[in-house]
């Protein structure tokens, strides 16, 4: 078990090491990075926004229920939704959702390329496949996922408003006052740090699982599933570590 973990860890580091090298042609890497940014960013916007809206709505309703008969001012609900969204929910949920959507897609794409000998074909041409196929994905994710997280945070806070104000749990003034109270810009730093780390984890792990696929369609499916599961576990573990380090 330990030997297996060390083997994968070593090979993962080797893949990343090979990836961080001088590109054969910068323009090709630039094009590939833009393509990945579109796939990850535009392709995931709707699902991320949808999930964020519901998470924000449910969070607002739950806290409004919890604080119903307490002495805590009602506008605190807006404040709690804002902070919990920025610090925790937006980066973590976005990371977990994208691990499922983007990560599995990347693992399947690279695994398919491995099985169809596309990666071998590139290697023989002289392309550094670890760099050309993996690095643009990681770079694109690190650029785009923080933006998606930012959008998710806005939508989530908006979701909280929609869930509490029209239903009469809070007045519009109370919710907006709450979202503007005790704002700490450092929380945004935490959100962006988390989203960058999660983006790196979910893309690098997924690319690793896809890049080294062996066998047929069953193994490809397994690699895709493992990419999601391992990414999710690592995201949650790193979330804990970051929570300790950053607070």
């Amino acid at each position: 078990m330990i030997r297996n973990v060390l083997f994968h860890l070593g090979r993962y580091c080797k893949l990343l090491g090979q990836g961080f090298s001088k590109p054969e042609k910068v323009s090709m890497y630039y094009k590939e990075t833009l393509r990945q940014m579109t796939d990850i960013g535009v392709g995931s916007l709707v699902i991320v926004a949808l999930i964020a809206a519901f998470i924000g709505a449910v969070t607002a309703i739950q806290f409004s229920y919890q604080l119903q008969s307490s002495f805590v001012p009602r506008y605190y609900i807006g404040y709690i939704v804002r902070d919990i969204t920025i610090i925790e929910l937006a980066p973590t949920f976005t990371g977990l959702v994208l691990a499922g959507k983007v990560g599995s897609n990347m693992a399947a794409e690279l695994g398919g390329m491995r099985q169809k000998e596309h990666i071998d074909a590139m290697e023989i041409m002289g392309v550094n496949t670890a760099a050309y196929l993996v690095m643009p994905k990681i770079f694109a994710a690190i650029c785009v996922i923080p933006l998606l997280t930012c959008i998710a945070a806005f939508v989530s806070i908006g979701g909280g408003y929609v869930a509490t104000v029209p239903t009469g749990l809070l007045s519009s003034d109370e919710y907006i006052r709450g979202t503007r109270t005790f704002f700490m810009p450092y929380n945004l730093t935490m959100m962006f740090v988390k989203s960058v780390v999660f983006a790196f984890i979910l893309t690098s792990v997924s690319c690793y699982k896809g890049y080294y696929v062996k066998g047929g369609s069953i193994e490809l499916g397994e690699a895709s599933t493992q990419a999601v599961v391992i990414s999710d576990i690592l995201i949650l573990m790193s979330d804990l570590v970051l929570a300790i380090l950053l607070t």
């Binding site: 169809k116 000998e117 596309h118 074909a121 023989i124």
Partner: peptide, 10 residues
């Protein structure tokens, strides 16, 4: 200086 044709064309 190397070219390769794969079995499945790749």
């Amino acid at each position: 200086e190397v070219g390769m044709l794969f079995q499945g064309s790749a």
